[in-house]
Design a protein around this nucleic acid. Sequence first.
DNA 1: TAAAAGAACTTGTATATACAAGTTCAATTT
DNA 2: AAATTGAACTTGTATATACAAGTTCTTTTA
Lengths: 237, 237
Amino acid sequence: MRTPRYKQLHQQLKADILIGRYEEGNLLPSENTLSAKHSMTRMMVRQALSALEQEGYITRRQGKGSIVCAHQPALGLLSFRGFSEVVGETEHSATSQFLSKPQLIKWNEGFFFDLSENEHQAGCIAIERLRQVDDQPVMLEYTYLPNLNIPEFCQKQWVDSSLFRTLYQHYQLEITSVDQRIRAVTAKVKIAAQLDLDVGTPILHIHRKYGTSRQGFFVYSSLFCNTEHYAIGSIIR
Amino acid sequence: MRTPRYKQLHQQLKADILIGRYEEGNLLPSENTLSAKHSMTRMMVRQALSALEQEGYITRRQGKGSIVCAHQPALGLLSFRGFSEVVGETEHSATSQFLSKPQLIKWNEGFFFDLSENEHQAGCIAIERLRQVDDQPVMLEYTYLPNLNIPEFCQKQWVDSSLFRTLYQHYQLEITSVDQRIRAVTAKVKIAAQLDLDVGTPILHIHRKYGTSRQGFFVYSSLFCNTEHYAIGSIIR
DNA sequence: TAAAAGAACTTGTATATACAAGTTCAATTT
DNA sequence: AAATTGAACTTGTATATACAAGTTCTTTTA
């Protein structure tokens, strides 16, 4: 037996949700239906559903069924909200553009997180992105990933302008944890220019280290955020 | 049947871990042992253990057993790290003092999160704390909780100077989620004085809404952090 | 017509059992 | 003495079954 059947079902259901086969708000097939269709016990189906629930893909209601959730990005990090309407549900148009295409470089000396020998030798793929909300630049993001077992990453087509979705699509890499450090600093000349701010404006500086489903593979980010009009929001469960 | 037996076991094991009955790094009794001792199926024991694992109290290893983890605070939020040694494990002495004892007041007009009718009527318990690292003030924290079913809170003895541990001890309230907004702002006169900073220094301003194990009960915080020497760190799993 | 009861579904809790697979350590073999 | 084997433990995967409890909709009753 290679991978357990309930894990297969879990993966399949997750994939189905992600491609929209089951729309959010709708019900998944009932446990009995799934158990019959895949000829496995209801207990095993429940194990698969529990995993989905834990990951936030579904919620379950006794007597009702398993309801597909609005899928939140990986860990609920990194969402923008207008500060004036802190709890408002107003949607903003968010776009993202490359300042430079992903390219293979050497790791910077004195990188902001410690690197393993493996990572250091592999070299670094650097990505510079500028994120805009309502056509205003609000976030400058430098992302670095080790060139380890992600063949031809720089040539790959990006999925939804999302690094994480791209990594999942092409390499089945999922983000499983985040370790971050947040500071308030003043915008220096270069950053201020990119974010269209006066030099000296207070901005957020965030260092992030993302853990993934692949042991020892991490993604690193350095973010500069203008929070004059939009706060950085995150929901953690 | 009031509360399911596996949930009872789950709560009991959790309590045992928290009071140190099972030390971190040690093994829990095996599933068969627990199943015999509590006369329930191994499957039910496994449900209890799965919940513990999900909450981060134990990890499980096939063939080995269930290992008690070093218990991380609720959601891994809010830890300080010296910025110069971003990944360093150096410990800092953290202390916390009240600027004013918890007191019952009216909710502020234009509170930073929307309040339910219930919360608004109940009134607000306000807490002002100043947190110091290595005897330097680094964080000013205003906490507000509705005076809902937490009788005599203002008279209660605090546990480990921790609001959350206090709420758990006296009312079995656990923090289950956090919704936060982070901005970089400049220190105004009053805040600057409290944090021993020059007016205009960039600081973090964080609004938080904590969800709890009790439906509809939330804790609100407004934080001002000096991040010149210590960054706000968080690990999310 | 409106309320109550019931049938048919859903997920939740629970028992009993079996074997697979990883870990540990003692007993046996080389 | 060192390596191998094997027994006895651990957690992981799996089946089959039963009833409790919540939801929904239809049927019956008042």
